[in-house]
Structure formats: structure tokens, C-alpha cells
Simulated scan of single mutants.
Amino acid sequence: MSFGPVEQWSHRAGVSLRPWSGRAPGGLVLRGLIKLAVGAAIVWIGWRLRSGDRLSDADAATVGLEPTAPTGWGTALIVVAMVPVLLGAAQVVIGVLDLVLRRRVTGRVVSIRERRMGDVLPGIVQEAIFERRDSGLDRRRSRYELVCHTPDGPQRWTIRSARTRRDLAVDAHVELRVSPIVGYVASARTINPPA
């Protein structure tokens, strides 16, 4: 397989360079809208504080302030709230683009394997870094990386659906419906190999 140098590094390290790798675009849009709503509410409260309005007890309790908080808190709230607003907006845009730009890809499955952050490290090092001392549990999120050899060369996607994962096998010829930005595999089916 001939990935580019950055792709080779990320493949070896088990890290995906895609934003929100393998997340369903619809779920990404929903989470983005929730972040936007929460951020907008905090910005509104911050704006009221900046203008010197007295907050109602319910508004003040929402952000953990006194109803007569100093106006400097309003600016701080607006600045802090911009993080979820911008992040939510990015999630909505990427989710909508991925819903619209889904495409079909055919190829041969080269590998399907579970990946976790730091899985290239020796086992004893992973245990020392990632396992909790009290319970012995490894709390890293796992994802399944699908590598297919396609007419455009080797490509990688993240599979989160257990059913889709079970339907795929190494060396099978498949047709995938994928999202180009987050690398979400919406559906997969085995096809006859090309002649």
C-alpha cells in the first residue's frame, strides 16, 4: 500500500486525521445544533450582563452567577461561549456537507482492524499509560479502521456500526457508501469481483 507520508504515519499510529472521524453526519449536525443553542444562550446572558441588565434568578442560575454580577463577567461569558458556538457551527457545516456529498466507492478490503490511540506502543507501555490502576480498565475509545484498495489507490474509513463490520471480510470486493469528510461508512455490501 502506498499511502502518502502523513497518511502512513497516521495509519501506523492508529490516529485518524479526519475531524470527528467516522461519526454519522446526521448525528454530527444534531450535536452541532445543540452546541450552537447552548452557546447562543450563554452569549445572550453575557450580552445582558455587559449592557448592565439585572439577570433573572433563573438566568443567573443557568451560568452560575449572582443576579447582580459585574459587567466584566458578560464579556468573559461571551468569549468563553464562542468556543462551543464555533465548534457547533463547524459540526453543522461538515455534517451537512457529508450528507450531501456522499458517494459510492468500490474496492477490495485489505484490512479491518480495531484501532485505539497509542495502539502501536508495546503492550506493557499501553498498560502503564492507559489502564486505570484501581479497576484495570482501559478507557480509550476504540474504532474500526477499514482499508480498501480502490481504483484511486488505498483509502481508509472508520466503521462504527457492528453490523456493517460483521458484513465485511478481508479480500471481499465491496461497494461502500461513504462520507468524504468524516469518513463515515453509511452502508457496505459485498459485490462480485470485477472481471
Score class of each variant (00 low, 15 high):
R139H: 09
V125W: 15
E145W: 05
L99F: 04
A61G: 14
R140I: 01
R31C: 06
V93N: 02
G74P: 06
I181F: 06
V93C: 01
V147W: 01
V105D: 01
S135N: 03
G26W: 08
V109L: 09
S10R: 15
A13V: 09
A69E: 07
A195L: 04
E66L: 05
R165T: 01
V96E: 03
A41N: 13
T106I: 11
A40E: 03
Y184K: 01
V109M: 11
I78T: 14
Q126F: 01
A40F: 05
V15T: 08
R160I: 04
A128F: 04
R103N: 08
L176Q: 06
E127V: 10
V15F: 07
S111F: 08
S135K: 11
V182W: 02
L33A: 12
P84M: 12
V15K: 11
A186Y: 11
R160H: 13
P70F: 08
A172F: 01
I42P: 00
D138Y: 10
S21Q: 07
A40K: 07
P70L: 10
A61V: 06
D138K: 14
V83E: 07
V125M: 15
P151V: 08
T106R: 15
W20T: 02
S161W: 04
E114N: 09
I159E: 00
G136I: 01
R31E: 02
R23F: 05
V85G: 03
E127L: 11
L168P: 04
D98T: 02
S16E: 03
T75P: 05
I78H: 13
V29E: 01
T190M: 13
A60S: 13
L87M: 12
V92I: 09
R50C: 03
R133L: 09
